[in-house]
Design a protein around this nucleic acid. Sequence first.
DNA 1: CTGTTAGCGCGTTCAG
DNA 2: CTGAACGCGCTAACAG
Lengths: 347, 347
Amino acid sequence: MRKQSVSTIRDVARAANVSTATVSHVFNDTRPVSEATRQAVLDAARRLNYRPSAIARSLTTRRTYTVGVVVADVLNPFFAGIIRGVEDLLWQQGRSLVVCSTDEQPEKEAYYLHLLLERRVDGVLVAPTGADLPVYAELQHHHIPAVFIDRRPPQPWGPTVETDNVRAGYAATRYLLDRGHTRIAILGRHQALSTVTGRFAGYRQALAEADITPDPSLAVTVDSHQEAALQGTLALLARRDPPTALIAANHVMTLGVVAAMRELGRQCPRELSFIAFDDLPWLALVAPPLTAVRHATAEICRCAVDLLMAAMNGQSTERNGTANYPIVTLPAELIERASCAHLDKAC
Amino acid sequence: MRKQSVSTIRDVARAANVSTATVSHVFNDTRPVSEATRQAVLDAARRLNYRPSAIARSLTTRRTYTVGVVVADVLNPFFAGIIRGVEDLLWQQGRSLVVCSTDEQPEKEAYYLHLLLERRVDGVLVAPTGADLPVYAELQHHHIPAVFIDRRPPQPWGPTVETDNVRAGYAATRYLLDRGHTRIAILGRHQALSTVTGRFAGYRQALAEADITPDPSLAVTVDSHQEAALQGTLALLARRDPPTALIAANHVMTLGVVAAMRELGRQCPRELSFIAFDDLPWLALVAPPLTAVRHATAEICRCAVDLLMAAMNGQSTERNGTANYPIVTLPAELIERASCAHLDKAC
DNA sequence: CTGTTAGCGCGTTCAG
DNA sequence: CTGAACGCGCTAACAG
């Protein structure tokens, strides 16, 4: 077998004695072709192992059938879920998905967005790091729509789909208040993301509504590592007046809290009631099962993809002057499990 | 601001009073350009918001700087880890990564590989479903190298990088044997993947070496869902002669086993010693901490990417006649934790 | 129903 | 050090 090069549409056209246009139309079903020539084309294509080049096609159609997904970390189960959800939705449209992990670094976010811009993806789904990057304007200039997921961008560069963090933080706190807790702590990452601030705001709001003067030292922020979360929890529980309940504002925090409880040999919920943000299978399997706030991941994906499609198929990104992008806020669900106890009134 | 279209290399050339060739060379640093014109070009580019089109570039260079990664499921933490590792390695080369989840369905695998083929990715990393797909030959025909990860392809269509499943299965079983267990069960998915068969083979080998006549009914295979794993475990533990130790051959199995233990109120390791394949943070945090087999994920990624790069930069896929592709087998690590107890001789 | 042809935006010879 | 011109593989007008 001699070194056969990859064959092009022209090779097929020659082999089938038709024009390249006909071949194109056979493959794209974009205008009627007589059955005879159609078969001839398909035969020739099969013989030559022909596969149309999406690159060449993209050059003329100005569509890549690809979208970029920029998240903090694919390894984080929450984002893995987002990616999976988006992939399934896009799959049906023949679109593929290039994934990028920023590790919460604005430089990496900018780098990846530039990459996606050069590749001329049809659109991007971004969980922004929070920095106000010039690349957002560039994307807009190049008519590449962006939809923000999970967190709000620093400026309204596009529609946003997020969990109702305020309400979720409120609901979790309220749930604990209803069980008699007054000294409730919350542990989150030390970062100005809308997720964090929202959850903390809901927490404070619930306390205020219950006429509890919030103790600022019970709202703890740490670096986004399990170890930091562990140390933060240890410090919290070592106080003379430790909290009776604790909310972990994301999954990494949850791991740290559980590690701390284990290290101290503290029992949950007898010695500390606990609510975890981000639900995962294992939370239901430990002793005690952990109460958790579950994101509406499927809805987030569906909504984000819908918005992106609308922007991609619709006219331009900027409709008339300054567009007013929607912020879609989806409710989270509190999954009740055994990790929250009623506090005796006596306390 | 009027509707300004996206500017091309020609616009930049005009604006800078140079030829398109010069602009190209400025951006790619591919031949000396006088500092004056260089600046003029960069200025013009900045003014026009110019970004080179990777599509047009790919059409001439025949390189997309993109690789496809086909796995069973991005949501599976093992594969998420693979993707993250590969992404980090590729990132430094300016390559991006399109991810595809097959859900173990050969049709989906074929579909995605065709998609990647049309997109002319520089190479693919595949965790095959096990089916012998014609698309493998097509990839080869189109000189798109494939490297297989985690599982072996049905035919040697490319190099493979995998965990040493036999040794890992052997080590886990041996570990339990050393602690006095003789009735050891293993629970895996019901599927003819090299991962499963390897782990089961190692299990049988260890038993044979210990002169234990293996009880086939202790090697259980079920569908790859937590519920099926749960049922399988329940059945195993409901026997008149239940095993004293159990190995879960992957993470889904682990979830099912833990759920079953919880449902039965069985204590680990007092009533059942347990080893989990696939290590995750939470395994160390439950009571008791779960002994686990940890894959050398980082090494798998490094090795797979190295092999892929070699194939992409090297000449063609088929060097001389039938290439002989290596199968790289990387050792897993047994992480000792408290979930395995010594069995009293008396038993 | 089918063919011709002109780009799409870039890299890359070959001349100068 | 620079420019002109061709081609990558395909789609989209326009003819027929």
